[in-house]
């Protein structure tokens, strides 16, 4: 609060540094962490079994969250101001980064956010994943000058959205995407409902909860 102008001018600030932004951010995060914990999204077991295609619960959760969120955001955007910021698309860096991320996802059994939540539940391996994450982000920062000209600058189309590419109304695109995602989620749920699958269940319901 001592130098608000200097802070506001700092690069990369998201959502502001004033007291209201701090409090709303904290409350938003508490809700986010509680939802992830209660749905099992911070469980190694649930994430790895999603990637093994044995239990698609987390995929259904994520896709439904995207579908509802997309329509919600573009309804807000249509009637009021939504703080939408389209991430830049650079095909090489995002594809390579995503492939590296996927290996880490399967090895750790957490993603960067669910590792924070799992750590807060008392899971020591998730705390180690967070430490590994700090090292990985620092390594990317020191390699940035070498990687950027090769993976980020070429094939970089800036902040392009699906509705820019299609040239149609964003809310219409959001509604169509949501319908497609919900249809896909229903299909995934039919797979999960086949006999012999253990979707949404813990590894051994009689044992102590320690996933």
């Amino acid at each position: 609060m001592t130098a608000p102008l200097a802070i506001a001018a700092q690069a990369g600030i998201v959502g502001g540094t004033d007291a209201r932004a701090i409090i709303i951010g904290l409350l938003t995060g508490i809700a986010f962490g509680a939802i992830l914990q209660r749905t099992g999204a911070s469980s190694y077991h649930m994430i790895v079994n999603m990637l093994r295609l044995k239990d698609l619960t987390i995929m259904k959760l994520l896709f439904l969250g995207i579908a509802v969120g997309s329509v919600g955001m573009y309804v807000v955007n249509a009637v009021d101001t939504a703080h939408i910021g389209i991430a830049p698309v650079y095909l090489l860096g995002i594809a390579v980064g995503g492939l590296v991320f996927g290996v880490g996802w399967a090895l750790a059994g957490y993603c960067p956010g669910t590792a924070l939540v799992a750590m807060s539940e008392g899971k020591a391996d998730a705390a180690i994943t967070v430490l590994g994450g700090l090292a990985g982000a620092a390594t990317l920062a020191v390699s940035w000058d070498y990687l950027k000209p090769v993976l980020v600058d070429p094939l970089n189309y800036g902040g392009k959205s699906l509705y820019d590419a299609l040239g149609v109304n964003p809310l219409l695109v959001a509604l169509v995407l949501a319908a497609a995602l919900i249809a896909f989620v229903i299909y995934l749920d039919r797979i999960d409902s086949r006999p012999g699958r253990q979707a949404g269940k813990r590894l051994d319901p009689t044992a102590r909860p320690e996933l």
Binding site: L62, G65, I66, G69, S70, M73, Y74, I84, G85, I86, A87, P88, V89, G93, I94, V96, G97, G98, L99, V100, F101, G102, V103, G104, W105, A106, L107, A108, G109, Y110, C111, P112, G113, T114, A115, I128, T129, V130, L131, G132, G133, L134, A135, G136, A137, T139, L140, A141, L147, L151, V152, G159, K160, S161, L162, Y163, P170, V173, A174, L177
Partner: peptide, 28 residues
């Protein structure tokens, strides 16, 4: 795993939250 997750996420400009949950919802 954590190392690869954050190396990859920072290279790509986001993770499962920023690029997938909210990124796809924003239609990026």
């Amino acid at each position: 795993g954590g190392f690869l997750l954050l190396f990859g996420a920072r290279l790509a400009g986001g993770c499962t939250s920023g690029l997938v949950l909210s990124g796809i919802a924003q239609l990026a």
